[in-house]
């Protein structure tokens, strides 16, 4: 009976992995195909589609914008999230629970709704520059993740360590930098990584807040796909996978993946 169960678990595991990994392998393989449309199996081998990525301005521009927006949004959410999470965990206000819900609320709102409401309020009504609107939208996407992880980190951090530093003559501000920050650095880094990935992958908010000169990579890919079905998209997807893989390996080496998943 137990061996049967064991076998079943094995089969389910293998099937799951195959279904998860197979499409990815397909994309990697098709990116090297010589056919002008994405097809499998491939008939010849070429790097041409990779070269094509760089001939498309929308891709290089989109990549730069995506990275810049993701970096700035993650940074902003960390800078706002850190004091907010600290106040929420250490403060004794009656509103702590309410405020926590407010900070985490953007996760509950469908991103399409978030994107549309930002578009109509910031871009159309307030005539905000598109880049700033996009940045604000991505900041809203990132903040709940950052705050969630920071609250988790701060709750696990023994507050008497901080108090001990005060008793030994450290001011509150200095104690925060000397004791709290070094001990929740894992949460800060994982919050930053999670924010970055979320922002980089986001489509719904980006679609509404893109325009003539401001385009994110995912929306560029989407636009390209509407007119072309060549393996350039496979090639760029492969590049992104490789980038994510390097990213994850670095995180794993530095922190261990477990801490990222928390």
């Amino acid at each position: 009976m137990t061996t049967n169960k064991h076998l079943l678990t094995k089969i389910i595991g293998i099937v799951t992995i195959v279904f998860l990994v197979f499409p990815l392998i397909l994309i990697v393989v098709t990116s090297f195909g010589t056919e002008p449309t994405i097809s499998f199996p491939i008939k010849g081998f070429t790097f041409a589609w990779y070269a094509n990525i760089f001939s498309q301005d929308s891709f290089t521009q989109g990549f730069i914008t995506s990275v810049v927006i993701a970096l700035l949004a993650s940074l902003a959410s960390a800078l706002v999230g850190l004091p907010a999470a600290y106040a929420l965990t250490r403060g004794e206000t009656k509103f702590s629970h309410f405020l926590e819900s407010v900070f985490l609320a953007p996760v509950m709102v469908p991103e399409v709704v978030l994107g549309f409401s930002l578009y109509s309020s910031l871009v159309i009504y307030a005539r905000f520059p598109l880049f700033l609107s996009l940045l604000f939208g991505h900041f809203l996407i990132c903040m709940p993740y950052t705050i969630r992880l920071l609250i988790g980190g701060l709750e696990q951090f023994d507050s008497s360590i901080e108090e001990a530093s005060w008793v030994l003559g450290t001011s509150r501000l200095s104690g925060f930098f000397k004791m709290v920050l070094p001990n929740i650095s894992t949460s800060i880094i994982s919050g930053f990584l999670l924010s970055f990935i979320n922002s980089f992958n986001n489509i719904p908010v980006s679609v509404f807040l893109s325009g003539a000169n401001v385009n994110m990579l995912p929306t560029s890919i989407l636009n390209y796909l509407q007119n072309n079905y060549d393996p350039t998209v496979s090639a760029i997807s492969t590049c992104l996978m490789l980038l994510t893989l390097i990213f994850m390996l670095m995180a794993e080496k530095k922190l261990g993946l477990k801490s990222l998943i928390n």
Binding site: D158, E163, S165, V167, G169, S171, G175, N183
Partner: peptide
């Protein structure tokens, strides 16, 4: 007088050593 200027010593139940 704020805590950091009182020049007291304190031993905590959880030891509260600085882990880093």
């Amino acid at each position: 007088i704020p805590v950091y200027k009182r020049n007291f010593g304190m031993v905590f139940q959880s030891y509260a050593l600085f882990p880093q």
